[in-house]
Design a protein around this nucleic acid. Structure first.
Lengths: 201, 201
DNA sequence: CAGGCAATAATTTGATCATATTGTTGATGC
DNA sequence: GCATCAACAATATGATCAAATTATTGCCTG
């Protein structure tokens, strides 16, 4: 729910509320919330209240900076290790992603886009760096969802095709560059959207 | 206990064990363990058992790679923002650190060394990147403690002095470089120690 | 009609308990 | 003497409960 933005920034989160919304016991929900707070995906605000953090422009800068380093680095490693079948898998995910865009399905778009990057992290075989990167996705899921939901049409070009070609050619530099562009261009769109309509800081 | 290596890699962790060791209730301990698992500081091994993760050489590479990027980056930002008083604070911490080394107090050394880096992260004013970096410290506390404990004498030169001079001179490049050297040199020592005596993977 | 205060409702927190799962110990059979 | 299996002990898990804290509602006063 956090990762794909079913919860919006600022939304309050209660144990009992989630517990009955998900038909789950109260204990697992309680522990899940604690876990998400530890990862920065939820925020504890003194008064025992928990909510989805609001994202500031400064936070976005940190997010971009970190992923501009992490994603290309892991794309490089993934290129070194990916087999033909691994690349086929990525292509399949990318096809699904395009279909989600075509039918304007924001939720599916976010899932597939994450899945694509996640799979690259898996191929890189660097669990610690992957955990860092996925923690960042978690922190920015809610904001991304809001921004995407506000677009009239899901017009989101990515650099996945270039990455796949670079990986197939075992060109690490090109792969790293493609993923750097993917991150940079994606976040430029987010910033532009926030600039024209800065409803959420 | 994890951050400063009071728990060694491989150590098993039980709720009730910690609960009575710390004279704490069972509920807070349970939630703390879940939190630390989420941060990668503890590991859940299928069979309901929780333990301190063993660190492999591959993990060390990831740790070094990440901190070689994170620490210099934040040192640069900290240099941009640090006042004369901030630098004085850092100097005080560094003095304490040297005293800890002089009296061969490993635990105090680890605390002060972390505190020094932590303070730089605070000055950088990038909470998300700081959270990433401190998560890394947490993952590697247990290993560092073991390695330090095995040294006959705490012979750990650092580049803190160079960093402080660079910060005072507002030389961002020099500051970034000093912290890069600090990370690199420190981890080279760890790797060397593990190479001569690889008792723990 | 507005502002402050009291009472109520909602929520978190930590403890306790029943259950299930896992690891260990001891006994039995080969 | 060793392997196998059963009984037992230890532990985690999820539910439930009492206490404390916080938010909200409604009432009273100026």
């Amino acid at each position: 729910m956090v990762l794909f933005g079913d919860l919006a920034p600022g939304d309050a989160v209660t144990i009992q509320g989630l517990s009955q919304e998900l038909n789950a016991g109260v204990t697992p929900v309680r522990e899940a919330i604690r876990r998400l707070i530890a990862e920065g995906a939820l925020e504890f605000q003194g008064n025992r209240r928990v909510c989805v953090p609001e994202t500031t422009l400064a936070h976005i800068d940190e997010f971009v900076t970190a992923r501009q380093w992490l994603d290309p680095h892991m794309a490089r490693l993934a290129t070194r290790r990916a087999s033909r079948y691994d690349i086929k898998d990525l292509e399949r995910i990318d096809k699904d992603l395009d279909r989600a865009i075509a039918r304007n399905d924001i939720r599916a778009y976010m899932e597939r886009n994450f899945q694509f990057h996640h799979q690259v992290y898996v191929l890189a075989d660097t669990p610690i760096l992957a955990a860092l990167a996925e923690g960042l996705w978690l922190r920015f899921g809610p904001l991304l969802r809001v921004v995407c939901a506000r677009m009239v049409a899901l017009d989101l070009p990515d650099r996945h095709q270039e990455l796949l070609e670079a990986m197939a050619a075992k060109d690490e530099d090109a792969a790293a560059n493609a993923f750097w562009e993917d991150v940079t261009q994606g976040m430029d769109q987010v910033r532009a959207a926030l600039h024209t309509d800065p409803r959420d800081l």
